[in-house]
C-alpha cells in the first residue's frame, strides 16, 4: 500500500515531467537572458573585444545623451493615447455594426476580418504604396476631389496617423472579440430597457457598455502591451518611404521621417545590432521590460477581478 508521502512524491514527479519543457524554456530563454541583460547593461561590449565594466555609463547615456530615447518614448505615448484609443473605439464600432447587419453578414465579417491576417511586412509595404505622396492612389483620389494631399509616411506630422490607419485596417482581432461579447449580452436586459422607454443610445450606455466593459479594458491593456512591442510596421514604413532599404548606399535614418516613427524595440536593434553597443541596447531592453511588466500586472489584476466577479 502506498503511503501518502509516496503518492505526493509521485505526483510531484509527474507534475515536473509535464512541466519540464516549460521549465527549461523559461530558464534558458527568459531568466538567463534577463539576468544577462542586466549584466550587460553595466558593461561595455562591442562583440569583438571582451566586455569591460563601465558602471552606470550606459544608463546615463541612454537617459541623458541618446538622442533617440525620448523621441521613441514620446512616440510610444502618442501611439498609446491615439492609436490604442482609436483601435478600441473602431473595433467596438465595427463589432456593433457586424451584429446589426442582416444581409450579407458572412461577406462583411470576412471583409472586415481579412486585413488582420495580412503579414505585417506585406501590409505595411502595401500602405506605403497606397499612401505614397507622389503617385499613390489615396492622394490621387484626394487630389481629384480637391482635398489636401498629406505627405503621409514622408511627413513627420502625418507618419503616425498613417501608421494608425494601418492599425485600424487590421482591426479584425478586436472586431471578433467585441462581436462575441456583444452577442453574449443577455437579450432580456435590452427588452427590459426598451420597456422602460430607453432609446438606442441609452440602451448602449446602460446595458451594452456595463456588460462589455471587461472586454474593453482587456482590449485597452493588450493594446498598450502591443504598442510596447510595435516594431515591424514603423520600421518597414520608414525604410520604404525613405527609399533606403536593402542594399542601397545611404544609411537609413532611424525613425524616418525625423524620428517620428521610432519605438523602443527599434532602439534595441539600433544600438545592439547597428552600433555594436551591447550595453546601451541592454539598458533599453530593461526599460522596455519594466514598462511591459507594469502593464502586464495591470492586465493580470483586471483578469483576476473579472474571474472573481
Amino acid at each position: 500500500m502506498t503511503t501518502l508521502r509516496q503518492k505526493h512524491r509521485r505526483e510531484t514527479a509527474r507534475t515536473l515531467a509535464f512541466l519540464s519543457p516549460w521549465l527549461i524554456g523559461v530558464s534558458v530563454f527568459f531568466l538567463y537572458p534577463l539576468v544577462s541583460t542586466v549584466y550587460f547593461s553595466f558593461m561595455k561590449y562591442d562583440g569583438f573585444t571582451p566586455p569591460t565594466w563601465t558602471g552606470l555609463k550606459n544608463w546615463q547615456y541612454v537617459f541623458t545623451d541618446y538622442p533617440f530615447f525620448w523621441p521613441a518614448l514620446r512616440n510610444t505615448l502618442w501611439l498609446v493615447v491615439v492609436m490604442v484609443t482609436l483601435r478600441v473605439l473602431f473595433g467596438l464600432g465595427i463589432g456593433l455594426l457586424i451584429t446589426k447587419v442582416k444581409t450579407g453578414a458572412g461577406f462583411f465579417r470576412t471583409a472586415f476580418y481579412l486585413p488582420y491576417l495580412a503579414p505585417p511586412v506585406a501590409a505595411t509595404m502595401a500602405f506605403a504604396f497606397l499612401l505614397n505622396p507622389g503617385t499613390g492612389p489615396v492622394n490621387n483620389i484626394l487630389g481629384s476631389i480637391g482635398l489636401p494631399q498629406p505627405g503621409w509616411f514622408n511627413d513627420p506630422s502625418w507618419s503616425k496617423p498613417a501608421l494608425t490607419m494601418l492599425a485600424l485596417w487590421g482591426i479584425g482581432d478586436l472586431m471578433v472579440i467585441f462581436m462575441a461579447s456583444l452577442l453574449d449580452v443577455p437579450q432580456e436586459q435590452y427588452e427590459a430597457a426598451s420597456l422602460d422607454g430607453a432609446g438606442a443610445w441609452q440602451r448602449f450606455r446602460f446595458v451594452t457598455l456595463p456588460n462589455i466593459s471587461p472586454i474593453v479594458l482587456f482590449a485597452v491593456v493588450t493594446g498598450v502591451i502591443q504598442t510596447m512591442q510595435y516594431y515591424t510596421q514603423p520600421l518597414v514604413a520608414g525604410k520604404v518611404a525613405s527609399g533606403v532599404i536593402g542594399g542601397a548606399g545611404q544609411q537609413f535614418e532611424p525613425g524616418y521621417p525625423e524620428k517620428s516613427t521610432l519605438t523602443l524595440p527599434q532602439l534595441v536593434y539600433h544600438l545592439g545590432f547597428q552600433r555594436f553597443d551591447t550595453g546601451g541596447a541592454s539598458v533599453i531592453a530593461l526599460v522596455l521590460f519594466a514598462l511591459a511588466m507594469v502593464f502586464t500586472v495591470f492586465l493580470m489584476r483586471s483578469m483576476t477581478e473579472r474571474s472573481a466577479a
Binding site: 505526483e11 541583460t37 536593434y269
Partner: peptide
C-alpha cells in the same frame, strides 16, 4: 494538477507572453 507554485508558473507564463522579444534579444543573439 494542483501543485505548489502553480500561480507563480501561471504568472510567469503570462509575463513571458507579454514580453517584447527585443527584451532578451541581445544575450540570446550572443
Amino acid at each position: 494538477f494542483k501543485f505548489r507554485g502553480r500561480n507563480v508558473v501561471l504568472m510567469l507564463v503570462i509575463a513571458t507572453m507579454m514580453l517584447p522579444p527585443q527584451v532578451v534579444i541581445v544575450p540570446m543573439y550572443l
